[in-house]
Amino acid sequence: MRALLFDLDGTLADTDRLHEQAWLEVLLPHGIRGDHAFYQQHISGHLNPEIVSRLLPWLSQTEGSALIEAKERRFRELAQSLEALPGLEELWRWATERSVAQALVTNAPRPNVEHVLQALGAEFDLVVLAEELAAGKPDPLPYRTALERLGLEAGEALAFEDSPSGVRSAVGAGIRTIGLTTGHDPQGLLEAGAFLLIDDFSDRRLWEYLEESKT
């Protein structure tokens, strides 16, 4: 194992509930009264332009962009006090001590990425933003791009994802993927291809797996 690849939202910190609140707030004036199940089915894990075009196809491109900007601004307002998921900082230290590269692979827009990383005091060897690529998750391209930029084969990396969409992206790139049960149905993560499910990074099953793996 030569690299750990992380998703952002719901993986580094419990931000999904904040995204959910922000989305439901900005959609309400457009006549969409969603709930948690609606958010998980139609929004979580997808790119913003896709979400808007699917849910609000009558909006112009300018109107859609304004709605996305309002949603992300509201998210950052809500995300003022973030904490890393339990065990994550220990995992970062573990990787650093063993010269295992650490990369962030996310569908999140750059301002959100910068906000969350600053709040967590986190730094990565590589950051791959889906918005700068031809396709985002669940397409494998973001993870394939990470492997290419790190100069690694898929078998040399381990990915962490919290959504079925993210798991499909990593698995589609041939990467072993661990699913975090922070916000989605565990069965959906397994069906998407996760080989192991953990509650957070302090989960003993993760550390048992790392102990068994050669680095």
Rank of each mutant, 00 (worst) to 15 (best):
L28K: 15
R176F: 08
S65D: 13
G64N: 10
S53L: 09
A173R: 01
L27C: 13
V128L: 06
W94K: 07
I32Y: 08
E72I: 06
T181H: 01
A122H: 11
L67H: 08
E25N: 11
A146Y: 00
W58P: 01
L129D: 05
S202M: 00
L67T: 06
T145N: 00
I178T: 08
V105Y: 04
E90W: 05
Y39G: 13
L8I: 08
E50Y: 13
Y39Q: 12
A146D: 00
Q187N: 04
P138N: 09
L12Y: 11
F195H: 02
G136R: 06
Q41N: 09
N48M: 05
A66S: 13
V167L: 07
F75P: 03
D125Q: 14
V113T: 11
D125F: 06
L126P: 05
E153C: 06
G136Q: 06
D203K: 05
E114N: 08
E97H: 13
L82H: 11
G136C: 06
K214G: 08
F6C: 12
A173W: 00
T96Q: 15
A146T: 00
E72P: 03
I43M: 05
H184I: 00
V100W: 03
A159I: 08
R98Y: 09
L18Y: 14
D203V: 12
Q61D: 14
G183A: 13
L180K: 07
E191K: 11
R76F: 05
F38P: 06
L206K: 06
T177K: 05
A79N: 07
A22C: 10
L82Y: 12
V52T: 14
T181L: 03
D200S: 13
E50F: 11
Q21C: 11
Q118T: 14
Q40H: 12
D7G: 13
I51M: 11
R98L: 13
W58F: 13
G87A: 09
R204Y: 01
R144E: 13
H42I: 09
A135M: 02
E83T: 15
A134Q: 12
V167T: 12
S202A: 15
R17I: 15
E156S: 15
Y39V: 12
R149V: 00
L47N: 09
N107H: 09
L147S: 05
L150S: 04
P57Y: 06
Q41S: 12
